[in-house]
């Protein structure tokens, strides 16, 4: 397919195109929301990759779908459904996987929680008899309908979450790198583990509002994975992870704005390209 058919909105003049990108309120909101989401996902994702909890992160991202569909059925705001379901999912995961001693036991527990969450989500969708397009945007996201209030809520939730991670960063790092030694040194490893899952749940609930439940994972795992390949130093790693997540989100949103293809495709593809480059370069 020729480029001009894919990028129908672009007139190939950098200044003019950039100005058009921020001309409309809906696009300003999308970019603001994308920025908040990318910073949160970059920081939390870095710890998630360090703790090798990608599977848990993915499971929580699918719980977001359950929450949204349950909220739709109950007639409460979808945002409440996102946060409640992801919080409940985090607690369920922490309870089901126990002390993380056995890898195979944890993996079966996570898988079962995920299957149940999805099964319930599908049940709610079927009972709701909603439109198929609703299901698509729940799963794959939309950036067209972001309101000013939504951006404010995102900011209000993201700021304390990030502050919490900043306060707990040192013991969390210790507990993630060597849980046994950290436990012997008096750090409450299990409590930190539960706390981190809750933070992960909140980040997922935030990100899902923009990327949809199925694609949250791209923003959480891919920039963080690239950052871990680029540097092993914690502070630099988190910074790189956030920078990559921001670059991926902005590029993805811009490409989606000017092209005929969905934002989920662009964000995941740009993220994957970044990871491939990081892997090849290191």
């Amino acid at each position: 397919m020729p480029t001009s058919a894919v990028f129908t909105g672009l007139d190939w003049h950098p200044v003019h195109d950039a100005r058009e990108l921020v001309a409309y309120p809906f696009m300003q909101h999308a970019l603001a929301a994308g920025t908040i989401v990318a910073v949160t996902a970059g920081v939390v994702g870095w710890f998630m990759v360090l703790r090798r909890q990608s599977f848990a992160g993915h499971t929580l991202s699918l719980t977001a779908f359950t929450g949204a569909s349950a909220a739709g059925l109950a007639g409460v705001p979808v945002i409440a459904g996102y946060y409640l379901a992801c919080g409940a999912g985090a607690v369920a995961l922490a309870a089901a996987s126990g002390s993380r001693r056995s890898l195979s036991r944890e993996s079966a527990a996570t898988g079962s929680v995920q299957a149940l969450a999805l099964a319930l989500g599908f049940l709610f969708i079927s009972l709701y008899h909603g439109l198929l397009s609703d299901l698509d945007s729940l799963l794959f996201g939309t950036f067209l309908g972001v309101t000013r209030d939504q951006v404010l809520v995102l900011l209000l939730v993201a700021a304390p979450t990030l502050a919490l991670v900043a306060v707990a960063a040192r013991p969390l790092l210790y507990a993630s790198v060597d849980p046994d030694v950290a436990g012997a040194a008096g750090i409450r490893v299990r409590l930190l583990g539960l706390g981190f899952l809750l933070v992960l749940g909140i980040s997922v609930a935030e990100t899902a509002q923009i990327t949809g439940a199925l694609l949250v994972f791209a923003l959480l795992v891919t920039p963080a994975a690239a950052a871990h390949r680029i540097t092993a130093r914690p502070v630099a790693g988190v910074a790189v992870s956030v920078a990559l997540a921001l670059a991926v989100t902005w590029t993805g949103l811009a490409l989606a704005y000017f092209s005929v293809y969905p934002v989920g495709f662009w964000i995941t593809s740009v993220a994957f390209a970044v990871y491939v480059v990081a892997r090849a370069a290191t």
Binding site: R52, S54, G57, L214, V221, T222, S269, F272
Partner: peptide, 22 residues
Amino acid sequence: ADDTVIGTLFAWTLGLGVLFLA
């Protein structure tokens, strides 16, 4: 494979799925 590689790969696979769906 370690879970980060799997996660990265299939996050992109899903993105492709969205494209095909569109």
